[in-house]
């Protein structure tokens, strides 16, 4: 695969292992000032895969306050790491699976511990718009249909082996097929602009298509609707994250 070769080449030049260089570019968000106002995204580096339970174990080994029941427990809902066997035991067979049931607060702390941060929604969506062959496949009906099928197939399915990576055109894997992913809290300026359009209220009715740049981008609606229900402490069994720098 060409994309696999690209990924291999990119991997060789990573600032740290497992992180992919994402070049600057533009993408069209689900909600924008107009149907043609693409958003510029500066270059950054993104984890090639979601953070695993094994990686998160090393974090909570080093930072006791983020263990289940630890000092930072008030920053997450009670579902935090609830399916771990013990605060320092995710279960040996599951170390390669994406970590889930982590709050945004915990994800931010994990990324900071690694000298990085959560991606903004723009950065995440920019990379997520890539199919295996095109960096901007948001308007490709086949890619859209693929994502709808992928999101639906996650229902009731166990998280699968994270090592079976099929990277997209940026060289990044598992943006869609395993779990939802956290993005950073919107900045104040961004929130002013987009809060109304991406609020839980707006996502809770047929009017959600009002103002959307592409009313047929159901995959994006599913992601935006999911995010609209989140607060910083939320924990969800199908929600993980990856870091960027």
């Amino acid at each position: 695969m060409f994309s696999a070769l690209v990924a291999a080449a990119v991997l060789a030049t990573l600032p740290h292992a497992g992180r992919v260089a994402i070049p600057a570019g533009t993408y069209l968000p689900l909600y924008a000032a107009s149907a043609t106002s693409r958003v510029h995204v500066a270059a950054f580096h993104m984890d090639q895969q979601p953070v695993t339970r094994g990686q998160f174990l090393r974090f909570v080994q080093a930072r006791a306050e983020w263990r289940r029941g630890g000092a930072a427990r008030a920053l997450s809902e009670t579902g935090y790491l609830s399916d771990w066997k013990a605060p320092l035991d995710p279960g040996a067979a599951t170390l390669d699976e994406p970590v889930t049931d982590v709050s945004r607060n915990a994800a931010v702390a994990y990324c900071a511990w690694r000298g990085s941060r959560l991606p903004t929604a723009d950065e995440w969506e920019y990379v997520a718009a890539a199919s295996q062959t095109s960096r901007d496949a948001a308007r490709d009906p086949a890619f859209s249909a693929h994502l709808i099928a992928v999101y639906s197939a996650r229902a009731g399915r166990k998280l699968t082996d994270i090592r079976r990576a099929r990277p997209n055109a940026f060289g990044v894997s598992h943006m869609h097929d395993l779990v939802w992913e956290w993005t950073a809290s919107p900045s104040a300026a961004h929130a002013m602009h987009h809060a109304a359009m991406t609020s839980a209220e707006h996502m809770a009715c047929a009017a959600a298509s009002d103002g959307a740049t592409d009313p047929a981008n159901y995959a994006a609606f599913l992601r935006y609707a999911f995010r609209s229900g989140l607060s910083d402490g939320s924990t969800v069994h199908t929600l993980g994250f990856r870091c960027v720098s």
Partner: peptide, 10 residues
């Protein structure tokens, strides 16, 4: 609908 958007596990 506006008062009931509910995440999995919630």
């Amino acid at each position: 609908a506006k008062m009931t958007l509910t995440l999995p596990g919630h």
